[in-house]
Design a binder for these strands. Sequence first.
DNA 1: TTAACTGTATTATCACGAATAGTACACCTA
DNA 2: TAGGTGTACTATTCGTGATAATACAGTTAA
Lengths: 129, 129
Amino acid sequence: MFRIEPLSRQPVYEQIVEQTETLVLTGSLKAGDQMPSVRSLAVTLSINPNTIQKAYIELDRRGIIQAAPGKGNFISPAAYDLLCQTKRSQLDAFDTLVRELLLAGIEKEELCGRLDTLAATSLKGECDV
Amino acid sequence: MFRIEPLSRQPVYEQIVEQTETLVLTGSLKAGDQMPSVRSLAVTLSINPNTIQKAYIELDRRGIIQAAPGKGNFISPAAYDLLCQTKRSQLDAFDTLVRELLLAGIEKEELCGRLDTLAATSLKGECDV
DNA sequence: TTAACTGTATTATCACGAATAGTACACCTA
DNA sequence: TAGGTGTACTATTCGTGATAATACAGTTAA
């Protein structure tokens, strides 16, 4: 379910947060789905339970999951819409990257071509905002 | 010349490296241009000379600058071409980002529109590879 | 020649945050 | 009741970015 790279600069707990969000966006995780328990995921990924907890706390803070003490952590009903909204505010990252690639002499046409290919591949629904 | 954000997760020395590379790509720094001296830049940016040196060592390692002991650090003749080549290998970052934005329900057309705008704005030459 | 600049090298130390370790408590359910 | 769940807390380790303080060597111009 998760793929952790311990050598990455990005903290492990953040990798879990981001991958969870991606799983929600791709539809692999839907509202109401139960997350792996703190302890079980710690065993699976061979990392400390506290690290998992830290990731879950952050996901809860963002409204992506909801904790039910004694039962488990579950994907929040609003998770998907929340993420759509968040991603929309990250369009400037797209701008920055494109600007740099253009500066490096990469043709606009090449980027457009890739965009088309990706759009055709990722056959996903819309975000009803 | 440089804009350092001390609170960023990105190390200061890396900020200097990346900004230098961007300046080369934009044409603000050309082959043969002299970089600020380690000590002077340290004073200007109010950071430790060792941090500047670390950035310069990395730039030298990448072939972007060349050191002339006793004289200074200078933009390497191959700097621009090197960066064009490097950026080209970062197209998968573009793919990853686009994929996520598409998943978040952002229309392909919107991204294309932004791409057009950016291409029109950044009126730069090509990279003769 | 001297002074003042340049890059380079070395060692020690500090500061911050990620990650670990260990323990404890409360809740839910079969 | 037993064993799962989330939660809280403290202490410690560890890596690394950044600082501090020197020292040495090459270049340049007064």
